[in-house]
C-alpha cells in the first residue's frame, strides 16, 4: 500500500514535470499584438487560429485525451471556423476597397469621396469581424491549453 502510494506520487511528479519546467519560460508569442494595421491583425489571427487547430488535432488524436476534452474542442472549433471564414470575407472586401481607393488618386472629388466611404465601411466591417472572431478563437485556445495543461 505504502509502495503503491509512493509510485503514484512519483508518477504525478514526473507527469507534472513539463508544466513545472515551463514556469519561468518566456510567454508564448502573441502574433496579433505585433500587427500594426487591420489587415495584418486579421492575417495574424487567421494564422494563429490555424496553428491552434493543428494543436487541437494532435490533442484529439491522442488516445489519452479524455472524451470530454475532445468534445469541448470540437464544439469550440465548430464555432470558430465559421468566424474565421467570415473574417476572410471581410478582409477580402477591405483589400478591394483599399485597392479601389488607391487607384483613384488624382481622380475627381466625388469619386474619391465614394471610394473613401466604401473603404471606411469595409474597415468597420473588418474591425467587427476581427472582434467577432477573437472570442471563439480565444475559447479554442483556452481548451487547447487546458487539454495540454
Amino acid at each position: 500500500m505504502r509502495h503503491s502510494l509512493r509510485a503514484i506520487v512519483l508518477c504525478c511528479a514526473l507527469a507534472l514535470t513539463p508544466a513545472c519546467a515551463s514556469i519561468g519560460q518566456p510567454p508564448v508569442a502573441n502574433p496579433v499584438a505585433a500587427a500594426k494595421t487591420l489587415d495584418q491583425r486579421a492575417y495574424a489571427l487567421l494564422r494563429t487560429y490555424a496553428a491552434l487547430v493543428e494543436e487541437a488535432t494532435d490533442i484529439v488524436g491522442d488516445p489519452a485525451t479524455p472524451r470530454a476534452v475532445s468534445r469541448a474542442l470540437g464544439q469550440a472549433e465548430r464555432i470558430a471556423t465559421p468566424a474565421a471564414e467570415t473574417l476572410t470575407v471581410a478582409v477580402g472586401a477591405y483589400l478591394r476597397a483599399q485597392a479601389d481607393f488607391n487607384a483613384l488618386s488624382g481622380q475627381s472629388q466625388p469619386a474619391l469621396e465614394r471610394a473613401s466611404l466604401a473603404l471606411t465601411i469595409a474597415a468597420q466591417g473588418l474591425n467587427q469581424a476581427i472582434a467577432a472572431a477573437q472570442a471563439p478563437i480565444g475559447e479554442l485556445e483556452h481548451h487547447v491549453r487546458a487539454g495540454r495543461g
Binding site: 512519483l10 508518477c11 504525478c12 514526473l14 507527469a15 507534472l16 514535470t17 513539463p18 508544466a19 519546467a21 515551463s22 508564448v28 508569442a29 502573441n30 502574433p31 496579433v32 499584438a33 505585433a34 500587427a35 500594426k36 494595421t37 495584418q40 492575417y43 495574424a44 494564422r47 494563429t48 496553428a51 491552434l52 493543428e54 494543436e55 494532435d58 490533442i59 491522442d62 489519452a64 487547447v144 495540454r148
Partner: peptide, 30 residues
Amino acid sequence: ALAAGGVVAVNLDDLARKLADVRSEVEAMA
C-alpha cells in the same frame, strides 16, 4: 509517466514555435 509528459512537452513546444514564427512574419510585414 515521463513519456506522457514528454508528449505534452513536445506539443506545447510545437505550438509555441509556430506562434513565434507567425509573430516574426507579422512583425516583418509591419
